[in-house]
Amino acid sequence: MSDKTFTPADVATHNTPDKGLYIIIDSGVYDVTNFADEHPGGAKILKRVAGKDATKQFWKYHNEGVLKKYSPKLKIGEVKDVAKL
């Protein structure tokens, strides 16, 4: 797992399959590009939230076990909140 930091603006540029599909859950950044087709809820949902903070949507449908299971594979870093600098 990388300790790379992203700004929300960095994540926002990764919102298409060719640029990569990144989502934010809590403060973690996840690359779901290659996972989209495996997503039990369908790829369309991930594409819709790509580049955005999907925390609220994620917790509405998943529990912590899901995050723990997929974090090692999908987590690529953390969001650094520019406002706090």
Rank of each mutant, 00 (worst) to 15 (best):
G20R: 04
T16A: 05
P40S: 08
K56V: 11
I24P: 09
L46N: 08
L85D: 04
L74N: 14
G51F: 00
K60D: 15
L67F: 11
H62P: 14
K44V: 03
S27F: 15
N15H: 03
A50I: 05
K84Y: 06
A36S: 00
K47Y: 01
L21N: 02
K19Q: 04
L85Y: 04
K80G: 13
F58A: 14
A12Q: 01
E64N: 14
K75C: 11
Y61F: 15
P17Y: 01
I76L: 12
A43S: 07
V11N: 02
E64G: 15
Y61A: 15
V66C: 11
N34C: 03
G41Y: 05
K52W: 00
T33W: 06
N34H: 10
K60T: 15
Q57A: 14
I45A: 13
K52N: 05
G65M: 05
G42S: 03
V79W: 10
T33L: 03
E64Q: 15
K84R: 04
K73C: 03
I76D: 09
D81G: 05
I23V: 13
Y22P: 05
E78V: 13
V79Y: 09
T13S: 07
A36N: 01
K60W: 13
H14F: 08
I25D: 10
D53A: 02
D37T: 07
E38P: 03
P8N: 08
Q57L: 12
G65C: 02
P8V: 15
G28D: 11
T5Y: 05
I76S: 07
T55C: 07
K75E: 14
A83D: 03
M1V: 07
T33F: 08
I23C: 05
L21H: 03
E38L: 05
E64H: 15
K44R: 02
D26I: 13
K73V: 00
D53I: 11
K52Y: 01
D81H: 07
P17H: 02
A36G: 01
K69Y: 10
G42A: 06
D10W: 02
L46Q: 08
D53K: 02
Y30M: 12
T7E: 02
K60G: 15
T55D: 06
K69V: 06
V11D: 00
G77H: 08
K84A: 15
V79I: 14
N63Q: 14
L21I: 10
K52E: 08
M1I: 11
K80S: 14
K56C: 09
V32Y: 09
V79L: 11
V32W: 04
I25Y: 07
K56M: 10
P40L: 08
G42Q: 01
P72S: 00
Q57G: 15
V66P: 13
V79P: 10
F58Q: 11
L46Y: 08
Y70W: 06
D18T: 08
P17E: 02
H62Y: 11
F35Y: 14
G41H: 06
K80L: 15
P40T: 07
K4R: 14
Y70A: 09
T5M: 12
D3V: 12
I23F: 00
L85G: 12
F6M: 09
A54C: 07
K19F: 02
D3E: 10
K69S: 11
